[in-house]
Design a protein around this nucleic acid. Structure first.
Lengths: 351, 351
DNA sequence: TTGAAAGCGCTAACAT
DNA sequence: ATGTTAGCGCTTTCAA
């Protein structure tokens, strides 16, 4: 078509002026048609001509240029603030992405490796690219330090929070999760439940443990009668703690674990010792970890950590407009998922 | 500082003209200093003044504007072409991100959910935002259809390929992985090795199986003497196939599995049957799946799928400049990782 | 109902 | 050694 050199930046793409020329209208008119600019009336005839030209040339507006003009990039920065970039981040991103797409936004992703200085630097890069908003996410729920510069755009925290809750955050309702998991076990008839916890210093562990105790008390049981062993969320700590339980004598009828990986380790130890799950003892996980909980044998009863939903909520809220994003915590429900690793106790409770 | 309204797009940020004014130079000079423009000589005195002004105002160039001018956004589109957005994608993204950062690029991420029409649409969104290049990644190695529009920018495929190999792709060297895993077992003294494969129709399964047979033949063994049972990469298929093995009579001395999840399922079945690993039988996985292989008990010997390295390579190559990106496959080595689920066989080989 | 023109913030060729 | 100027591709006010 054009015989002149095409070595300018946007090479190969039709520009708005090309469309205007082909349609025989002014460039402004093209914008009016494409943007359905309010307060602009365009004759049907003109609109048709423009649309045909757009189609013919395969014209797509250059969003970088639009962005420069409008001061919005239709892009949200997603900061994964963790050393590892694993299943959690993946799920949260998936949710955020899905919601973003629905609103015409895309995610610009960075991973800080858990370092605050990296975070500051990367948020800088994000803002340089004019991201309209920021999602700041951590894998293990925890307190974070958000780079100052993030204040320049609407920011939502996912699975983390800042001291004073100056920024809005979306968190899993761990206490309720712990409570409902315990309740599910109680409902099955269990009266002797051990808890192999995750890292005790973590926010999630404390909340889940609180839920555990609340449920026990609510059922008229004394939490102090129930074994609580501190672990660290790794599979091998589940393995070790289950062996400890085994060594100590009569097993409880049910074992709650800090997360699925620990439950998994516990399962291994139990099997090794010839203890059947769930016939001899019920095992409950936490997380509903992708490609793990549902697949192992027996399929693990667990509590779902709603990471995707949390990412979705954050992106949704940011897309709905900045001013509506108010500080404070939003707790998201963690539903209990009953599978095959739990059953009614076969023997009466100990004691 | 400024008392005039700040309701224009770039609100709050200092612009280049602000810096120029404060430094008492022209806007162009600011660019020259900041970009170290070749062929421009700036006096030390001027440079200092500019840099001070930059510092004082906290000036950072608007990359959207830079991009519009230069026709490059310092952004790479990462297309995760899969229904699930799991550990694989996470690892590849992590690698790509790391390399990108090093070159001043950021990743604009999309997830197609495995749908080609979604892929086409999302690649459109990516290109609208002027991404300089594209990385197209799949979780399970496979053939993909890349949207036509992707041809407009340099594109590299990660863990997938197009028919005819018209686009460069980075793939794991699965045949070698299968061969070396088998060889590791042979080196331990195993002569009777069963293979519980992943989905047989998949590219990876076929290649690994080929490697398995090559290694066996290389050791003077007849592959037909070794049990090969087809599975599907899920943990429960490992469980079921291991039970099949158990039922069939004398166990092999070593079991290779399609992936870590299957190895995991097999482990469960073995334990349940009172078979000890690695004392009675060695188990080998594949993938070196994050938070799984290294943590379970016994820690799983496996073959590492170098997803992060693959993502890194792709991003690296794209950053080094488009023209250097030539079609063809690049195979990346999958190293064997020996842990505790493998050992020398205790009993002599069957037969 | 449409067009002209002024910028968004920046780079780079061309002056001086 | 530094400044002027013409855009990059688009939106949007204002005028016709």
């Amino acid at each position: 078509m054009s015989t002149h050199e095409d070595h300018r930046p946007n090479a190969g793409r039709a520009r708005r002026t090309d469309v205007a020329r082909l349609a025989g209208v002014s460039p402004a008119t093209v914008s009016f048609v494409l943007n359905k600019t309010a307060g602009q009336t365009i004759s049907d005839e003109t609109r048709r001509r423009v649309l045909r030209a757009v189609d013919e040339l395969g014209y797509r507006p250059n969003r970088a240029a639009q962005g420069l003009r409008q001061g919005r990039s239709a892009t949200i920065g997603f900061v994964s603030h963790d050393s590892d970039f694993g299943v959690f981040a993946a799920a949260a991103i998936k949710g955020a992405h899905e919601a973003s797409i629905r609103h015409g936004n895309l995610l610009l992703l960075v991973n800080t490796g858990g370092s605050n200085s990296q975070a500051a630097q990367l948020v800088g890069e994000l803002l340089d690219r004019q991201t309209d908003a920021l999602i700041f996410a951590a894998a293990g729920t925890r307190s974070v330090v958000v780079p100052e510069s993030a204040e320049k755009v609407p920011t939502i925290l996912v699975n983390c929070y800042v001291t004073g809750d100056a920024l809005p955050s979306v968190l899993p309702d761990e206490a309720r999760g712990g409570r409902e998991a315990t309740q599910a076990l109680l409902d099955l008839g269990h009266r002797d439940i051990a808890y192999l916890t995750g890292t005790v210093s973590s926010w999630a562990t404390k909340a889940r443990l609180r839920g555990f105790r609340e449920a026990l008390s609510g059922a008229g049981l004394d939490p102090r009668d129930h074994t609580v062993l501190p672990g660290n969320y790794h599979a091998d700590s589940g393995y070790e703690l289950a062996r400890t339980l085994l060594r100590r004598g009569p097993l409880p009828t049910a074992i709650m674990c800090g997360n699925d990986r620990m439950a998994f380790g516990a399962l291994l130890a139990l099997l090794e010792a010839g203890v059947r799950v769930p016939e001899d003892v019920s095992v409950m996980g936490y997380d509903d970890q992708f490609q793990l909980a549902a697949e192992i044998h027996p399929a693990l009863s667990t509590v779902r950590l709603p990471y995707a939903a949390m990412g979705r909520m954050a992106a949704e809220r940011l897309a709905d407009g900045g001013p509506a994003v108010r500080p404070g915590r939003t707790l998201v429900h963690c539903p209990v998922v009953m599978r095959d690793s739990t059953a009614a106790p076969a023997r009466p409770a100990r004691g």
